[in-house]
Design a protein around this nucleic acid. Structure first.
Lengths: 157, 157
DNA sequence: CTTCTATTGAAAATGATTTTCATTATCATA
DNA sequence: TATGATAATGAAAATCATTTTCAATAGAAG
């Protein structure tokens, strides 16, 4: 699932999208591919910078936005005042997960469980939504909000 | 379902949460109760200001955060660079909805459909998550990302 | 090689949110 | 009802993520 023509898979995606494959964009992809989870733009910048110090923060922002529009990354906002990005792994993959957010201490727990039920539900909903709103759905986010164990205890005290 | 003691329902919630019921907080609640959908902090400020010009933006932010922690409002981030707030209506209510977000033009469509399937799925998942992560879940958000009709067409051109 | 256009990075601008801090309001109790 | 402790407030300043501007550069097509 790697090369076709001459380069990694995303080269074709860039081409299809009508943008050039450039050094900075390659580096940003490299960073995203080489890491685990939700990075902020600044995180990406720091790592990209290690690989190639010529790359600027502005370009990182711009590249992330392009990747977002292409459906290659997903953008999250957890109310931290900044966004986080991560590569989209197909919904079926084990990387797919969602979040439990504590509204008090703002802790975020990733959970990878219960994908079966989710898949079934998402499939149904997605199909209906696509049709009704003529929307091409590429991805989804599910987040639960509440109190983590510690904050729950504090509430009662 | 209104008064008990002397005041609207949220007075008790404030009390339970250990914070005072003050004029600015009442006004913020009034604004939220009197409007339809997702307001930014600035929106709330403007409206609160009309009702009582003494109220400051800082207090609006602080109040919204308290309401968030109490589970009275929900905070949304759609990647606009600012958050939006709205009162939480019970999941079963007709007000409950989710969002379709266009990653290209950033348009947001609220949808109110398919609550039945959702309720079933959410119930199951929520119960399991609560137990496994000892998390007290108060609310959830489901968002779909993709391309709206117009942007879909542009992509193909 | 030349031209046209996309891309880039630095710096400045923007804009939302938070922090600081002195003042004021509120509550429980003397 | 007066009082002292503490919560809440608003204005201004500080932060910090993100966007815009703009001149310089790189890449593709001829």
């Amino acid at each position: 699932m790697r090369r076709r023509g001459r380069g990694p898979w995303w080269h074709n995606r860039f081409e299809d999208f009508g943008v050039r494959v450039t050094e900075p964009r390659e580096v940003v992809m490299e960073v995203l591919l080489g890491t685990a989870e939700h990075l902020t733009a600044a995180d990406v910048y720091v790592r990209a910078h290690e690989l190639n110090p010529a790359i600027g923060l502005t370009t990182v922002y711009r590249t992330l936005d392009i990747l977002l529009q292409m459906g290659i990354v997903q953008k999250f906002d957890f109310g931290e005042g900044k966004s986080r990005y991560e590569l989209i792994n197909n919904s079926q993959s084990k990387e797919h997960h969602h979040h439990l957010v504590c509204v008090r201490c703002k802790t975020i727990i990733d959970y990878y469980d219960f994908v079966d039920e989710e898949l079934e539900f998402i499939q149904k909903t997605q199909d209906k939504l696509s049709e009704k709103y003529r929307f091409h759905i590429m991805d989804h986010v599910i987040s639960f909000y509440g109190l983590c164990e510690q904050c729950k205890v504090k509430s009662q005290g």
